[in-house]
């Protein structure tokens, strides 16, 4: 029995290290997802990103998501980690890994975890545009 693991990191994520934690002789499949910082959003050039979180609730909600994935899918283990702080273009913002006996469940659970993280975990993204302007993504001011 593996314990659910979701954590926030203020240092660069290390996929090779995370992957080793999922090694299991019962597993025949490993599905991983990496979210990268891209250099554009909605037509604007982006120089860098800053992620911040509500740490207490982010870890709690992230761990609930991983626990849900372990219940819903036939998987052996799952780990997810999300960055906070300033990230350059190409930096890894989030990493999800799922090991399972078979690939179907591994893909499904990996997809489930990243989609739920994006919609539920209190993490915010500030974009720094090449124009010098910054903006909180999804917080466009209503008139």
């Amino acid at each position: 029995m593996h314990s659910p693991t979701f954590s926030m990191s203020s240092t660069p994520l290390e996929p090779e290290v995370l992957k080793k934690e999922l090694l299991d002789s019962h597993a025949g499949a490993l599905a991983t997802f990496e979210g990268w910082v891209r250099n554009h959003n909605e037509g604007q050039p982006v120089d860098q990103l800053e992620y911040s979180s509500y740490p207490q609730l982010a870890e709690k909600e992230g761990q609930r998501i991983v626990a849900e994935a372990l219940e819903r899918f036939e998987i052996d283990a799952a780990i997810a980690q999300h960055r906070v702080g300033l990230l350059p273009i190409g930096g890894i913002a989030v990493w999800v890994g799922v090991s399972a006996a078979h690939r179907g469940a591994a893909f499904d659970a990996c997809r489930y975890i990243i989609e739920e993280i994006k919609s539920r975990v209190p993490i915010w993204k500030k974009e720094y545009y090449s124009t010098g302007v910054t903006d909180w993504v999804n917080c466009h001011q209503e008139t």
């Binding site: 509500y54 999300h82 994006k118 919609s119 209190p122 993490i123 915010w124 993204k125």
Partner: peptide, 10 residues
Amino acid sequence: IVFIPPVAGG
């Protein structure tokens, strides 16, 4: 109390 703005992880 925390008011949570629209999230944007990932």
